[in-house]
Amino acid sequence: MKVIFLKDVKGKGKKGEIKNVADGYARNFLFKQGLAIEATPANLKALE
């Protein structure tokens, strides 16, 4: 799953980066902790 990092995550990505991560890791950790959001077209446009 492609995500946009909202904060730096050690070993995974830095704020503003778009990367592929495992679906479960994204849903169960990154999204719940507020560290990333899904890289949807609307979210990508908002990032610009």
Rank of each mutant, 00 (worst) to 15 (best):
M1A: 06
M1G: 04
M1Y: 08
M1T: 12
K2T: 13
V3F: 00
I4N: 00
I4A: 02
I4E: 01
I4F: 08
F5M: 04
F5P: 00
F5Q: 00
L6V: 08
K7D: 07
K7G: 06
K7Y: 14
D8P: 05
D8E: 08
D8K: 06
V9K: 01
V9Y: 04
V9F: 05
K10S: 11
K10A: 14
K10T: 11
G11M: 06
G11Y: 08
G11R: 06
K12V: 15
K12D: 07
K12E: 13
K12F: 15
K14V: 10
K14S: 10
K14Y: 13
K15T: 09
K15S: 08
K15I: 10
K15D: 02
K15Q: 10
G16R: 03
G16D: 06
G16F: 09
G16S: 04
G16P: 01
E17H: 05
E17S: 06
E17V: 04
I18W: 03
I18R: 02
I18D: 01
K19I: 11
N20I: 15
V21M: 10
V21P: 00
A22I: 08
A22S: 15
A22M: 11
A22Y: 11
D23W: 14
G24S: 15
G24R: 12
G24T: 13
G24A: 15
G24Q: 13
Y25G: 04
Y25D: 07
A26H: 05
A26D: 07
R27W: 10
R27E: 07
R27M: 10
N28L: 12
N28P: 01
N28T: 10
F29W: 13
F29D: 06
F29M: 08
F29N: 06
F29H: 09
F29V: 13
L30S: 00
L30D: 01
L30P: 01
L30Q: 01
L30K: 00
F31H: 01
F31G: 01
F31S: 02
K32N: 09
K32E: 10
Q33A: 11
Q33T: 10
Q33M: 15
G34A: 07
G34V: 03
G34F: 09
L35H: 05
L35G: 02
L35K: 04
A36K: 00
I37L: 10
I37F: 04
I37E: 05
I37M: 11
I37R: 05
I37T: 05
E38D: 04
E38G: 04
E38L: 09
E38W: 07
E38S: 07
E38F: 05
A39R: 01
A39I: 03
A39N: 02
A39T: 02
T40P: 03
T40F: 04
P41D: 12
P41S: 10
P41I: 10
P41V: 11
A42Q: 11
A42M: 09
A42V: 09
A42W: 05
L44F: 04
L44E: 05
L44S: 04
L44D: 03
K45F: 08
K45L: 14
A46G: 10
A46R: 12
A46F: 12
A46L: 15
A46M: 14
A46N: 12
L47Q: 08
E48F: 11
E48T: 11
